[in-house]
Design a protein around this nucleic acid. Structure first.
Lengths: 240, 240
DNA sequence: TAATAATGTGACCAACCAGTCATATGACCG
DNA sequence: CGGTCATATGACTGGTTGGTCACATTATTA
């Protein structure tokens, strides 16, 4: 955690420093982030930096904490009950919520993703993010089987792995689209849950996981609005 | 490419240096790899290193090349014809081939994975690995639709993303299992394609993608041997 | 105003980095 | 033997790093 001095800073200056720091960490990975460069870009003295933060790692964990807080905030919203809406709708909600946080904080997300892949990991995170996610999806599949949404002959572990991979792949894709500017977030689209392009992609992806892609699949049902063929193009994304 | 001097080295010494180098790059990411540490661990002089390799990047791209070569070798084997065996069997074969390479060269794989995620990327790789993979899967889905294996109403782009995520997730999982020692490769199991645990996981995963996980899914057909519930445990992996 | 506390500052430090180069070693050839 | 050439060596360079600290400046008290 940063020193009190940092929080005593005038709001404007604090935000400006924070922005420089986030830029640095979003562009470079931990080892390559240079404190000297940060203080130069922020226009503050080296000594000041070390009055705000204990050391480099302190700063790093703080950024990761910011991301965790942002995620917690969204997930504490009106989360649907899986027993009520069904496991696939629940999955869709979770994925949308997750990506909503990512879209709202693209740089912090980038940092968090890098953190999850790095071998250096702050002590603050005892369980690797990936591992935790896998456990979550495994539980999800088990619950799904208990309430009959997921077929009983489905292998729990493999299904969880497929879930995790598919969902994170879609999320990463969306994040890339936003950071590269292919999907533009208009200011009035504050509530990212309602971004039609985002919702449509998840709807489609979850439907694929539920119904499969094979020729034997049922047509998408009413619960999942039929995906328009050009979902992505509609959001300004070229098909090729 | 390393200098000729490197290849003139006595085989044993060359291999030993290579091993140290691979260890270093598997443990650290590019920026954190230290040439000084490498020469210390390898017991050679700094000057010698720079007679073997032009610079740090030269060494790095050489390692990535080794991985590419290993992959090429496997993929040039008796690749099945998607038009003949169907798109899902083809996908399964490709995934198994990919993971076979990874299991054969776990450290190089780790380096390659890191390379794909890093922002620093050697000029040698013009197209990011992820992008190329995505294009590949997209073509795969299109072909699948043309020959009727994949339902025509499936969104190509989203399906490709789901494919990519699911397959890479399974691969990564298997790689983790091997590097952590949870799956043990016996020396006689040289042909990794025949490792039952590996085959079973891919069979299950691909079946999930084809048939879906929902309660409406068809039972796995004869073409995909019914997955035993305890596939992973059978390979020495605890379910939890 | 004087005293005290909080904050700002940048020269400085030891450690490390990638990369160089003059010199030494030894193998081969005539 | 002398000469040539490939290879081995590690002290050295110029630069950067994260972090420190004596001192200067400003804010807050009394």
């Amino acid at each position: 955690m940063p020193q009190q001095t940092f929080f005593n800073l005038p709001e404007e200056k604090r935000q400006q420093i924070l922005q420089v720091v986030i830029d640095e960490f979003a562009e470079n990975d931990y080892e390559s982030v240079s404190i000297s460069r940060i203080v130069a870009r922020a226009g503050i003295a080296k000594g000041s930096f070390y009055q705000y933060f204990k050391d480099k790692e302190d700063l790093y964990t703080y950024l990761l904490d910011l991301m965790v807080e942002a995620k917690k905030e969204v997930l504490s919203l009106d989360r649907p009950d899986p027993n009520h809406v069904g496991i696939f709708a629940y999955l869709r909600w979770m994925a949308e919520a997750g990506v909503a946080v990512q879209l709202a904080h693209p740089q912090l997300s980038k940092i968090a993703v890098r953190a999850a892949n790095a071998n250096f990991f702050p002590k603050a995170f005892d369980l690797s993010a990936r591992e935790a996610t896998q456990v979550f999806y495994q539980r999800l599949v088990e619950v799904g089987q208990q309430q009959g949404d997921i077929a009983p002959d489905v292998d729990v572990k493999v299904a969880a792995i497929v879930f995790e991979g598919a969902m994170s792949s879609v999320s990463r894709y969306l994040l890339d689209q936003v950071t590269s500017g292919a999907i533009v977030l208009k200011p009035e689209e504050e509530n990212l849950f309602d971004l039609p392009a985002v919702k449509a992609i998840f709807t489609t992806a979850v439907d694929l996981l539920e119904q499969g892609m094979g020729s034997g699949r049922r047509q998408a049902q009413e619960a999942y609005p039929a995906p328009q063929p050009q979902i992505l193009s509609a959001a300004g994304v070229e098909a090729d």
